[in-house]
Design a protein around this nucleic acid. Sequence first.
DNA 1: ACAACATGTCACCATATGGTGACATATGAG
DNA 2: CTCATATGTCACCATATGGTGACATGTTGT
Lengths: 122, 122
Amino acid sequence: MSKDPDAVWKALGDPTRRNILDRLSENPRTTGDLVTVFPDLCRTAVMKHLDVLQNANLIIVKREGRLRWNHLNPVPIQEICDRWVSRHVRHLASAASRLKAVAESPTKNRAKKKGLPRDNQN
Amino acid sequence: MSKDPDAVWKALGDPTRRNILDRLSENPRTTGDLVTVFPDLCRTAVMKHLDVLQNANLIIVKREGRLRWNHLNPVPIQEICDRWVSRHVRHLASAASRLKAVAESPTKNRAKKKGLPRDNQN
DNA sequence: ACAACATGTCACCATATGGTGACATATGAG
DNA sequence: CTCATATGTCACCATATGGTGACATGTTGT
């Protein structure tokens, strides 16, 4: 369903948009309602953010008369998280232990290049 | 450890930086090595990305002589994912089922405003 | 029908961002 | 010591981005 992870990550990179998604995760809201949530922003700014979210498939928009209802679509978020975690969980673990080893051995104790627990860098 | 989730999310919003993290999750690499991974980018561009990642605490930098080693710090990623998931898992579930209900009931069948499974919009 | 309400669209703007080349500095190798 | 290697720093640039106000369009309520 999420065609473009890049668009999803990019959309999540902005705090206002994450805040919008927070609100929508509680219940759907009309655009006008969301505008009141951000009194420091003008309406069109909020609409722009919603546009980004819609293009990233993070929200589903339903028009009812003059009301535009915005619904959270949780699937892309779950997808990128799952994908990220499944890709990295073993790597994350080994990276963490490696990081721990680096942190615990002072730099000056290192041999020149031999015996380092590092893989080929080239 | 991750002082600023905004910085983490923002850092993850860029595909090059996510790619860098992918590589570092396998094993640490020197800056020069990472530069060779992105032959389409000039060195300083890669360094800029690493700077963003470092400022977001997503990598730990260790200087060894003229080599700069970059290590993945998996903690902030795990933190924002955990926080995001824990905050939204129940909301995500209810939002998903609500979305499903919206998708399954044609718009014109809706009563005016009464009986809608929506909460107070204000 | 008309006014109020809600949203859509567009042009503009200041700042941010991802990228570049050039110069500088530090370390390593011979 | 000199040269090679690796990185640091800076200024610049084109494009992107988050924001604004104004005008336009569609729907609802009276």
